[in-house]
């Protein structure tokens, strides 16, 4: 939790939403702001209240928990915010999740029957998100003119994302420029999964996390596409369920 720097400074709703934009639905790897989950943001001095709703009332409690805690932590990372209070609405476990997250209890004590802790679920979804993002990053480098074999061999030191992206190939003698955004998105997840850091020799990996042999590039590229299609596919299902749930004239459901 951060301390306040100015007595009178107050976060703007826009600043809060920018922080919330960094929070993803872990199954879809898309921002909860983009997905339209955030209903309301209320700033009162150094306290911020965020209310959100998920596409279905039975969305996995572990996923809902991750989004709620991530939202709380992101908002509290603003220097002008002391406490963020998160409220989940219209969910089968809205009370347990809202109360548990705001009381800063661990997931396991609120949901003792859940299989596996929230951190292991997060790790496996992060891994899938990494592979999905890898597809866009590889495509950016292919479009910039690199070959699959060159991409397979890239080290973290070969890539510079500052001042537009530059990648050095042919033993560092040739610099090729590219749009840094898909690479930055990829590296963010690759770092979160612990596969890549500043000294990493292989930036890109198989879905299992191993370095890519040059002749394997095409297969890994296709598997990355598949992971990407899967995540966005599930997004389309959630989206349709969301529309169905809030359609006009819809009888109240899922409240038993």
């Amino acid at each position: 939790m951060s301390s306040r720097t100015h007595e009178d400074a107050e976060a703007s709703v826009r600043e809060v939403r920018e922080r919330l934009d960094r929070v993803t639905d872990p199954e879809l790897d898309e921002s909860i702001v983009e997905l339209g989950y955030v209903d309301d943001v209320l700033v009162r001095g150094s306290s911020v209240d965020v209310t959100f709703t998920l596409p279905t009332a039975w969305c996995s409690p572990a996923f809902a928990w991750m989004m709620a805690t991530d939202a709380r932590d992101e908002v509290e990372s603003l220097v002008t915010v002391e406490t963020a209070t998160i409220t989940l609405r219209e969910h089968m476990h809205e009370a347990e999740i809202t109360e548990g997250v705001n009381a800063r209890e661990p997931f396991e004590s609120v949901f003792p029957d859940a299989d596996g802790g929230v951190e292991s679920i997060r790790a496996s979804l992060d891994e899938k998100a990494r592979v999905g993002r890898q597809f866009d990053a590889m495509n950016e480098l292919l479009d910039a003119g690199l070959t699959g074999a060159q991409i397979s061999k890239l080290t973290r030191r070969d890539l510079s994302l500052e001042d537009g992206g530059v990648v050095f190939v042919r033993d560092g003698n040739v610099g090729v420029t590219f749009d840094p955004e898909p690479l930055a998105d990829y590296l963010e997840k690759a770092e979160a999964t612990g596969l890549v850091d500043a000294d990493t020799d292989h930036v890109f990996r198989t879905p299992e996390g191993d370095p890519i042999a040059p002749e394997q590039f095409d297969l890994v590229h296709k598997r990355s596409r598949l992971a990407n299609v899967n995540m966005t596919g599930q997004g389309n299902i959630c989206d349709a369920l969301n529309e169905a749930r809030f359609a006009e004239g819809r009888p109240p459901l899922s409240e038993t």
């Binding site: 279905t56 039975w58 299902i237 349709a240 369920l241 529309e243 169905a244 749930r245 359609a247 819809r250 459901l253 899922s254 038993t256």
Partner: peptide, 17 residues
């Protein structure tokens, strides 16, 4: 109650698509 939740959930899928 799982039986009621189940059919209602099916119905969400039905109307969703």
């Amino acid at each position: 109650e799982g039986g009621e939740q189940f059919i209602q959930c099916f119905y969400d899928y039905h109307t969703g698509f």
